[in-house]
Computed example of a mutant assay.
Amino acid sequence: MPTSLPWIVAALMAAPFVGSFIGLLTLRLPAGRPWIVVRSACGGCQRRLSLPDLAPLVSFLVTRGRCRTCRASIPLRYPLIEAGCLVIALGGVLTQTGAMILATAFFGWFLLAVAIVDAENLWLPDVLTLPLGITGWLVVIRLGIASPLEPLIGAAVGYGALALVGWAYRRFRHREGLGGGDPFLLGAIGVWVGWEGLPAVLLWACGLGLATALFLAVRRGRRLLVTEPLPFGTFLAAGAWLTWIFNTTPYLSRGL
């Protein structure tokens, strides 16, 4: 525990601030607005937010979810994302030791950003999926989880598997069955969990997707049409996080 303490503190301290950034990123990136080194402003009065306004979670509680100037409501998505990042960090603290705590938190935060963008926009931008894979390669090599070649095999298997499924669906059903970003996302996930972890990721993703489809069908009181799109990237992200947390493959257990 003493050797893990700096990693625990780093993950828990960074979590709300990362969540604040993700809240901004997931709104501005799909809208094509600048999101790097750009100061935030109130959506109502356009006042530039000061440091007290930007304090994650605390500012929302102190202002009771309203702008200090115009009293416009602050969307609940911001504190929820910040709290979600804190929960992800806690997941790393409770299941990992040492540097794996921060690696787990970082992986989860990256996946959360991907999941939100896909859930809200049915879009998986390369600007998120490609850095996820590159960062994963650096992390697993640095932590001694895999040799430099193994993550690349995971990437190739992940991308190839979904690309093949997408091609087959298009070939025999004559319409798109997967989004173009899904193979890239599974390829990036394969870097982190290895090719051995990909079946678990897909099982989790398919299970969550089916549960979501059934829930929506019951809620709407009708059958869910097979042509209605679902954010499969969101389910892949959740499946990747669960696979990493439960550490079910020899590939991942090397990092412990």
Rank of each mutant, 00 (worst) to 15 (best):
L256S: 12
V127I: 14
C42F: 11
L124I: 08
V193R: 01
S73N: 08
G136E: 00
T63M: 14
L230V: 15
T249K: 03
F107Y: 05
R39T: 14
A238C: 12
A146R: 01
G65E: 04
A156Q: 01
I74G: 02
V18A: 07
G44M: 04
G98Y: 03
W244V: 04
L242S: 09
L57Y: 04
I88W: 00
G144N: 05
A200K: 11
S147T: 15
I153Y: 08
W167Q: 04
T212K: 12
S40K: 09
G158P: 00
D118C: 07
L224R: 09
W167I: 10
V87G: 11
L208K: 05
Q46P: 03
V93Y: 02
V37Y: 13
A217C: 12
W195Q: 11
L94Y: 13
A113V: 11
I145S: 06
I116K: 08
G239T: 11
W241L: 12
Y78S: 11
V9E: 05
I88E: 02
L230C: 08
G181V: 04
G158Q: 00
A146N: 10
L208G: 08
L112I: 06
G177Q: 09
W204H: 03
Y78A: 06
R222E: 13
S73P: 00
P30M: 02
V140W: 00
V201E: 00
I8W: 08
A205Q: 00
R171G: 10
V226T: 14
F106T: 15
R28L: 12
T234A: 15
P199K: 10
I141H: 12
V165P: 08
F235W: 14
F110I: 08
L29H: 09
D126G: 13
P183C: 09
V62I: 13
L164R: 07
Y251Q: 07
A238S: 14
L130D: 00
L57C: 10
I81T: 10
P229K: 06
V38K: 13
L186T: 00
L54Q: 08
L149N: 15
F172D: 07
E196F: 12
S50D: 14
S50L: 15
A15F: 04
L143P: 01
S50W: 14
P34N: 09
L29V: 04
A238V: 11
I22R: 04
V191E: 08
P131V: 03
G144R: 01
A31E: 15
A14T: 10
I134Y: 07
V9K: 10
I189N: 02
G180S: 11
G23V: 07
F21D: 06
G179I: 03
C85Y: 02
L111I: 00
V140K: 02
F110L: 08
W244S: 00
D53W: 01
F110M: 04
R223E: 14
R77W: 12
P16E: 05
C206L: 14
W35M: 03
A15K: 08
L210M: 14
L236S: 04
G43F: 10
L61C: 11
Q96P: 03
I8R: 09
G84A: 10
V38G: 04
